[in-house]
């Protein structure tokens, strides 16, 4: 179970990865999360999360071409796998199921 569990931050990364087709790598993902959530992100956490997701089989990576702005360094791009998509869906379903059970609160 531990192997396929999706942490909160991992879920966020996976979701962003799914949104950014063909240009998902740590910098774009980090920037997108910063923009969407307003949190400030350390790049290494994104990178580590991606690494873990890849180990779990939720994303697949491939090397992208070198560009000038990175001083000729290659980048590792990520795309979501079908297992990853299933895991996202599952997480979403669990949540919506629980939201339906939510009693009405008045604060």
């Amino acid at each position: 179970m531990k192997g396929t569990h999706l942490g909160e931050f991992e879920e966020l990364v996976l979701l962003t990865c799914a949104l950014l087709i063909d240009r998902a790598y740590s910098v774009t993902i980090g920037a997108e999360i910063e923009e969407q959530t307003g949190r400030s992100i350390t790049l290494s956490t994104v990178h580590t999360a991606l690494y873990r997701l890849e180990k779990k089989g939720f994303v697949a990576s491939y090397m992208g071409g070198a560009t000038g702005e990175r001083g000729g360094r290659k980048k590792r791009l990520y795309k979501i796998t079908s297992e990853g998509f299933d895991a996202l869906n599952q997480a979403k379903n669990i949540r919506s199921k629980m939201w339906q059970l939510m009693p009405e609160y008045k604060f």
Partner: peptide
């Protein structure tokens, strides 16, 4: 090293 340094440099310029 390539991907990490590349990513970090981009992040830096951001």
């Amino acid at each position: 090293i390539d991907e990490v340094q590349g990513d970090l440099h981009e992040w830096f310029s951001k």
